[in-house]
Design a protein around this nucleic acid. Structure first.
Length: 264
DNA sequence: ATGGTTGCACGGCAA
């Protein structure tokens, strides 16, 4: 069977019903993982999402900030949220769909100052990344079929940002973050499923700031949104796409969806 | 060095 998995930082699930419907119409994902839903579970738009054809939904949300959802055309098993760095702030959820573990993650953005001694938010981000690496190295289930998606808020490669030199000391592309993200990835032999298809010489972004009058002309983007797969799924990876055009949709999020196709 | 924009929720914080 084929399975299409998409991830999208939607920046307010209640604010974007039209872009959400358009994504479903145009990309037709079987599984759609959302981050930054910014909605407590009791105000989540369940009816609208059921109308898009997702019969199975797991929400892990809170009032105002963060929040995740896993939308699926196929049954969701063993769904659960997980606290990270000792906080119940709705940044991690996982479930099993069609025998594949799906992990949906929203890494803290980290604030503006890239110094953990001066900026608690940056310290929290580094601790979060360390905890992910630790957790995944402890699991030792590299043979398992698993997919990890989300807004990881780190652009690891030089061509994952518009200017490597100019962003080396900017939160999301500092060596402290990039090293930790790579440690996390290597802790479980994760394959970067998007760079699996797009050569590292090619610029590739999934986020453009709202604070930019003409995002397309200046194109000062970063690749913050990722899809990773375990080696057991390497042969099943068929294609990957970053939906750049979605940044120009009416009521766009500042992030665009990332999509991977698997043939199981 | 600063300010630029958005969502949530209705002031100010987080991004």
């Amino acid at each position: 069977m084929s399975l299409r998995i998409a991830t999208w930082n939607i920046c307010g699930v209640r604010r974007r019903p039209e872009p959400l419907a358009r994504l479903v119409r145009e990309a037709k994902p079987d599984v759609l993982c959302l981050q930054e839903t910014k909605a407590a579970d009791d105000v989540f738009p369940h009816a609208a999402i059921a109308a898009l054809g997702f019969k199975h939904v797991f929400v892990h949300g809170m009032k105002g900030y963060n929040g995740l959802a896993i939308l699926s055309r196929w049954p969701i098993k063993n769904a659960t949220g997980r606290d990270c760095v000792g906080r119940s702030d709705c940044r991690y959820a996982h479930a099993t769909i069609e025998g594949i573990e799906i992990h949906n993650c929203y890494v803290p953005a980290g604030g503006d100052v890239p110094d953990p001694k001066k900026n608690d938010k940056f310290a929290h981000k580094l601790a979060f990344l360390d905890e992910m690496a630790e957790w995944w190295s402890g699991r030792r289930r590299r043979n398992a079929k698993a997919i990890l998606v989300g807004d990881l808020n780190v652009a690891p490669l030089e061509n994952d940002v518009w200017s490597h030199k100019q962003l080396l000391n900017v939160v999301s592309h500092t060596p402290a973050e990039v090293d930790r993200l790579q440690r996390w990835r290597q802790a479980h032999d994760w394959i970067d499923a998007v760079r699996h298809f797009v050569p590292p010489e090619q610029k590739l972004f999934s986020w453009w700031s709202f604070r930019n009058r003409d995002w397309a002309a200046s194109d000062r983007g970063r690749r913050l949104d990722h899809i990773w797969a375990t080696p057991a799924l390497a042969g099943a990876l068929k294609s990957a796409k970053v939906m750049r055009e979605a940044r120009g949709w009416p009521d766009a999020s500042d992030h665009v969806p990332v999509v991977v196709d698997l043939k199981l």
